[in-house]
Amino acid sequence: MARLKPWRWAVFGLAALYFLVPLAASVVFTVDVPGQGLTADAYTEILSTDGFGSSLLLSLELAAATIAVVLLLLVPATVALRLGAPRLRPVVEVVCSLPLVVPPIAFVAGISTVLKWGPDHLSHTPLFQTFVAIQNPDFPFVLVLAYVVMALPFVYRALDAGLRAVDVRTLVEAARSCGASWPQALVRAVLPNLRGALLNSAFLTLALVLGEFTVSHLLGFTPFAVWIVNVGGEQAQLSVAVSVLSLLLTWLLLLALASAGGRSRTTASRG
């Protein structure tokens, strides 16, 4: 590790304080109950509280589905953009940035308006069943659709940066002249070199989905973030404990993803 100069230590220390003090305060709040001393009751209580497992599982499932959909959508799109239509890039960039500009409240208002078309106008058409299916509380696919849109700006940027670092056209052509068909060239020659970008996209999407509250709450579903808020209304200590736990959980998931990707990368670059 590079030697850190004193002023760097100062900045590092300040940043650490800024992050760690609230965290430490949260932890102290959950374990130090007035009159009882130190206790881990708040944490043990989580597991027995109704809805913890199911809401967490729902969030993870939603995250997995969102990652799959957004990558399947954007990877071919960005590669095609790079190879076939570089002039369309600014257009796609603007479109993918729109979700940053539109506030989630407006977004969810639009979605619920559209969902109301189901009972209002479409009740006699087969499409009605589709509207019912995507709002299935066990797995509300409408949330995946919403999250895909919300993840677009992050995933697009991560993929674009990754694609900039490799000469996609030459890689594809080299693969093609080695007898690879189009899909083979994409999967065998381009994707392995986008590993970093794909992992980044997955990280960002995972973090986004685990923490998303507005859309899922207003549409009436209960993934993890909504559940935390609901629980907090009744028991403040429990809700903070859950927040701390969810923070740790997100970290662990990100670390797991990073080490999974990182390990294969180091073995790949070893001579």
């Binding site: 000469d167 030459t170 890689l171 052509e173 080299a174 693969a175 392995p192 070199n193 590993r195 790949a268």
Partner: peptide, 9 residues
């Protein structure tokens, strides 16, 4: 190819 075209991975 003109540019280095080996598969980096």
């Amino acid at each position: 190819f003109q540019s280095y075209s080996l598969f980096p991975h």
